[in-house]
Design a protein around this nucleic acid. Structure first.
Length: 599
DNA sequence: AGTGTTCAAGCCAGTCTTAC
DNA sequence: GTAAGACTGGCTTGAACACT
């Protein structure tokens, strides 16, 4: 429908469909006439396709919020407006470049970049693909569009373009504008005539045009099966599709970063976000370069330069995960803020308020490993068994930060804010650690978060090559105890004054210090333990034990019992595990200490 | 004090089973 | 059909006891 509307409207206005979609007529292998992408762009389509990501969907908070005025703002007709804003692309002037300043918000530009944002940036804006989702870390590699690169630079990010190209655009003419305008006029007319169905239809058409441009693009490098699932349509256009989604992610990111530091943002979903920032503050945040482009286009389209509308508001919210949020306390006369992301409610819960209540209760009473059925979009396309299971825990798109306890029903629950991950790797470690953690625990309190933090440290240590660290914290504590004893009997790590002491005395000293430890049953040492520690095949490696709380507590006690000992050296270096720099290891072969650096 | 030995526990990779 | 979970067998390591 949208495809036909676009094609017919362009022709009706005397526009050149091939020209605005960068196509030309060719003779195919079989001698028949057909259309193809301009030769100059053909090789670049792959890079543009890699830059075509979906919308920015992120949850920035977890658990009950404080009381306030939380508002759900929406970018009006985001994708159609972004399409209408594009100036006439000079397709035949496309050029390759690695100069970041070539990627302005006035061009179509696509690049594979290395980037690093300053730590102070609350909402980094370059998308990084993780399995099944997009994340926005402080540093990494990204396939990004020109508006996103321009925005990242304005936020102080350092950017290196590995591979990129730019298609200049002339702002004198906006070839996609008339069609979008026509579609919005149809919608307005239907609304005036009270024709609800026609209004919805024209809204759907306008929103579908950018979507159709992304239909049937070649598969991305990391796609699950390497085949086009949907064939391309007449208006499939990688460069426009990628630019439009990049422009909207960029605009959302620009607004979020221009909000006052005091503002709390709960979540962002493609073309909307929820915050406690006032309308005045949000309006002021819409004065950035990208938002201004949309505002000018919006004004030409509708006569109104506002790009945001307030949709719903509430007094207290319960953000859970990406696109899953309930209202804890509504505002008088306000609509409930509820999104379930397809989580199926039992049939007896019909009204929005009942469903909201149900989700709140599910969250409050959740147990480890809870699984709810999420209906997938494929169900509607005739795949009856394509539902999947989701829990009601945070999805760790960002690193959680404990803020305090808040009331949640009759009991309390931690309220968490978040900060961006430093890198994709940090996200991966957290996701893997949480998969393990959630089997036996829920994340409700500060203590739970600390426990999870231990799981992440373990996960990170286990990711190091040749570091056979056990999975569970208690086993790691036992491992730490063995490593300590092995160092002790050899007189390493500043323990040399104690090595000659009789085993009996060493045992006494250790066990006396452990008398007050809650884990003394596991840690108490026998003379046999010291004997075994002295064996030639009893080795240990410095710099490998994760700094979980149990281990830190144990090492503190042992350093008190053996002043001068530097057991800290057994732990993973503080400056952050792995990758960066060489790891210095002490490996004992026989009675001789061998010190070497791992490459 | 040092070394030999044994049995249990933990881990991993591969295979089978079950739920959706 | 897929993916998660359960099960299995081989291997390594550690704890404990025995012996010199």
């Amino acid at each position: 429908m949208a495809e036909a509307f676009f094609v017919e409207d362009v022709s009706a206005n005397g526009g050149d469909l091939h020209k605005i979609l960068a196509q030309e007529l060719i003779t195919k292998e079989d001698g028949k006439e057909g259309t193809a992408l301009l030769n100059r762009l053909h090789l670049r389509e792959t890079l543009a396709t890699e830059c075509y990501h979906g919308g920015r969907n992120e949850s920035f908070a977890f658990g009950p919020t404080k009381a306030g005025k939380w508002t759900d703002y929406d970018l009006c007709a985001a994708y159609p407006t972004a399409l209408a804003s594009i100036g006439s692309p000079a397709w035949d002037k496309a050029y390759g470049t690695t100069e970041p300043s070539d990627f302005t918000d006035q061009v179509l530009g696509f690049a594979y970049v290395h980037f690093e944002f300053p730590k102070s940036v609350r909402f980094p804006t370059l998308p990084v693909r993780a399995p099944g989702k997009l994340i926005f870390p402080l540093s990494g590699e990204s396939y990004a569009t020109a508006p996103e690169i321009a925005l990242a630079r304005s936020l102080g990010a350092s950017i290196t373009i590995q591979e990129g190209f730019v298609i200049p655009c002339s702002s004198d003419e906006k070839p996609y504008f008339p069609t979008i305008k026509k579609s919005l006029e149809h919608r307005k007319a239907a609304w005036k005539a009270g024709n609800d169905l026609a209004e919805k239809l024209h809204k759907a058409i306008a929103n579908s045009i950018p979507g159709k441009m992304g239909q049937g693009l070649p598969p991305k490098r990391d796609s699950k099966d390497y085949s086009r699932k949907v064939p391309p349509c007449r208006i499939t256009q990688a460069f426009l599709a990628a630019h439009i989604t990049g422009m909207i992610r960029g605009t959302a990111g620009e607004i979020l970063n221009r909000l006052p530091k005091s503002a709390t943002v709960i979540s962002v979903t493609t073309d909307g976000f929820i915050t406690d920032s006032s309308l005045a503050e949000v309006t002021a945040a819409c004065k950035g370069p990208l938002a201004s482009i949309l505002a000018a286009t919006r004004e030409s389209l509708t006569g109104d330069p506002r790009i945001l509308e307030e949709k719903r508001s509430a007094k207290r919210l319960l953000p859970i995960r990406n696109r899953v949020i309930a209202t804890l306390a509504p505002r008088p006369g306000g609509n409930l803020i509820l999104s379930r992301s397809g989580i199926r409610t039992p049939r007896q819960y019909r009204s929005t308020s009942q469903k909201n209540e149900w989700l709140r209760n599910q969250f409050r009473e959740r147990v480890p490993g809870l699984r709810l059925t999420q209906e997938s979009w494929r169900q509607t396309a005739g795949h009856p068994n394509s539902d999947f299971q989701v829990g009601l825990e945070y999805d760790f798109d960002r690193q959680l930060v404990y803020e305090g306890m808040e009331r949640c029903g009759r009991s309390g629950h931690g309220s968490f804010s978040s900060r961006p991950w430093h890198s994709l790797d940090d996200y991966r470690v957290a996701a893997a650690a949480f998969a393990e953690f959630r089997k036996s625990s829920c994340l409700r309190t500060q203590e739970d978060l600390a426990l999870f933090d231990d799981h992440m440290k373990i996960q990170r240590a286990r990711n190091q090559k040749d570091n056979p660290i056990p999975k569970d914290p208690l086993s790691i504590l036992m491992h730490a105890k063995r490593s300590f004893l092995r160092a002790l009997v050899r007189g390493d790590l500043g323990l040399d004054p104690y090595a000659p002491l009789p085993r009996k005395e060493l045992c006494l000293r250790i066990n006396r210090e452990l008398a007050a430890s809650p884990h003394k049953a596991h840690l108490e040492v026998t003379e046999d333990d010291l004997k075994n520690a002295r064996r030639t095949n009893s080795t240990y490696t410095a710099g490998t034990i994760p700094r979980i709380r149990l281990v830190e507590d144990f090492f503190e006690r042992m350093e008190a019992a053996f002043p001068g000992g530097t057991l800290e050296k057994l732990c993973v270096p503080l400056e952050e595990q792995g990758e960066k720099g060489n790891k210095t290891s002490l490996i004992y072969l026989g009675k001789t200490a061998v010190l070497f650096c791992r490459p």
